[in-house]
Design a protein around this nucleic acid. Structure first.
Lengths: 193, 193, 193, 193
DNA sequence: GGCTAAGCGAGACGGTACGTCCCGTCTTTGC
DNA sequence: GCAAAGACGGGACGTACCGTCTCGCTTAGCC
């Protein structure tokens, strides 16, 4: 419904308005590059060059690669926001959560995590803007889930997302619909055995 | 008994032998630096400078910062190796595992993970040389653990280590003896409530 | 009587007239900055910022720093124009010429010369608008000077202004009333010895 | 006769020796570029790129374009050093001085002067390392010159070099053998008229 | 004991990216 | 229509590390 983050009814700022074209070019190019070069090889210079954008524009609006990644995630989240809020049952929630980790999203998450681990400022931002929302969403689901074999909700959240990140970061196993269902089943005491 | 890693009884190689002093200086300096600069600011140049060592020496023997980190972990592990193999009960295992994450070790693990996430070659090495050993150790403990509420062992391992890394990487909560005991209790169906 | 340079009696152009306040602000700020930063540190952006003026305004009316400098010189010259045209005797002419090189004027001249040397377009403009007028003025004086020891007038002009610029640009010696008198005396064969 | 500036009999420094090839490439490239782009368009980046040299190498050994220009002049001077020291008569001295101002040398001198005028540190260096040597050389010649119409030697030096720089910087007239002879003749009271 | 062979500190080197500054242009709003 | 505000693509700045490459010196085993 909203056009712009900071839009109210104030009378439009002076000066040349921010270029939506450049914004798009940067986000798209970053996504492209992260798929080609795999997170580590990403560079402000490379993005600027490929996107046909000045470096300053990037530094000004995003401050660095992490800012771009966060915005990509934000965009990605806002597209699928209805799904998650409507989910009620744990199995479906985990299934769709894991399924939403498309290859490009995985790369973004990995790159973001790699930076956040080394930079406490970014870590805080990342936790507040992304991690906590996911925890809250899961929390809502858990509150309606019957028969969890572990009663401590916070612990369950840590276990579930820990599981996800552990597998994601180290490529230790599948993360898909089936795995989501399976994890949910185990946590609900409905393990196959 | 010899210091040389790959020494057997072959007749001692020709030429000047590797300097143990340099080896120590590099490892110690790296540990120092990672505590001062927090992982991100670590640099081959900085280590070489502070350790009074040629850059070439580092590239030759360790190949980069990750090699140094891995060796530090290896040394650290070999000191406390008896403890872990002797542990039988899950609570003690998790307690001592979490407790072994002293601040410097945490920084090393974080720095290593940050690199491994972006570099699949390193990731593979890291998983094979470190992650898998820990999984194996936990596996041994689990096999003797009675009454796990989740039967799938591999899943439990993912959950436990996922929990640990998730909290470690994002500073999301305590990781100490008490938390280890608590997690074990929950997994064994002995949750406080 | 109007401030506009190129106004005659044509019927006042349409639209908002050029802002005299901005013009003054730019010229004054440029003079301030050249005294603070010494020529090299001068920037369109800095002038615009400090003068509270849009960059576009500067580009439109002056085209760059050199245009501003030239206008400052023009203003400066128009204030003292009577003096020079009234001078008849070489000693007085040189004395007042050298004396007119106040510190701010020196900086402007240096900055202008530094640009002109590297930019042939500017050089031409500078020579036509400034250098040639000074040569002409000196020429008028010389024609009335008795007993010059060098007969070739053009050569004398080159020597005199060469002397001035050489000392000015490289800070190689005083340039004041006394030095003007002294130079004149030597050229007139009245050297102290 | 000498191989190296700072060579004595000290036992050769440790570490990789400075690359003569890079030194040459930088000097030659700078000379090329100054002829193509004309002084103002010269850039450390452009030199580094065209010379196939790292920027740091330039910053380390020369500190900037001015350092390069000074070294080019030094090399140029050392090639023709015998000529000037052997000259005894003013006419020949001025003739060969002016004649030595080949187009590339002119560009170097202009570029150097343009920088020196705006940067007092460089100005001092330029004066000490270049200007003063030329003044000293002229001084030696003047001391043997009979019948100078201006007795004050320092003044003559200022006049002569002022003449040269004035014409050089502003392209105000020829600077060649004939002009040197002519100037000398006038200063010696042998003007054509 | 002299020879050969590493290992090592030092440090120069060609590169690449950093984050900043300014250029000159363009596009708004507001007077 | 002029001007301030300010976003923009571009390009150079000077710095920091990268990983490689000589150097001279040291320290060993081997003939």
């Amino acid at each position: 419904m909203k056009t712009n983050d900071d839009s109210g009814e104030q009378p439009r700022k002076r000066g040349r308005p921010r270029s939506e074209a450049s914004r798009r070019a940067v986000l798209d190019t970053a996504l492209d590059l992260v798929q080609e070069c795999g997170g580590g090889g990403i560079t402000i210079e490379a993005i600027a060059r490929k996107a046909g954008v000045g470096k300053q524009t990037i530094y000004k609006w995003w401050g660095g690669t992490s800012g771009i990644f966060l915005e990509i995630l934000r965009e990605n989240a806002s597209r699928g926001i209805d799904d998650l809020s409507a989910e009620h049952d744990l199995g479906s929630f985990l299934a769709s959560t894991f399924q939403s980790l498309h290859p490009p999203v995985r790369l973004i998450l990995k790159a973001l995590m790699a930076e956040a681990v080394l930079d406490s400022t970014l870590r805080e931002k990342f936790v507040n803007e992304f991690i906590m929302q996911r925890r809250a969403a899961l929390s809502r689901v858990l509150r309606r889930a019957p028969g969890l074999i572990i009663k401590d909700e916070a612990l369950v959240i840590d276990l579930v997302f820990g599981f996800m990140w552990y597998r994601l970061l180290l490529d230790l196993g599948p993360l898909d619909t089936a795995e989501g269902k399976r994890l949910a089943a185990e946590l609900l005491g409905q393990g196959s055995r």
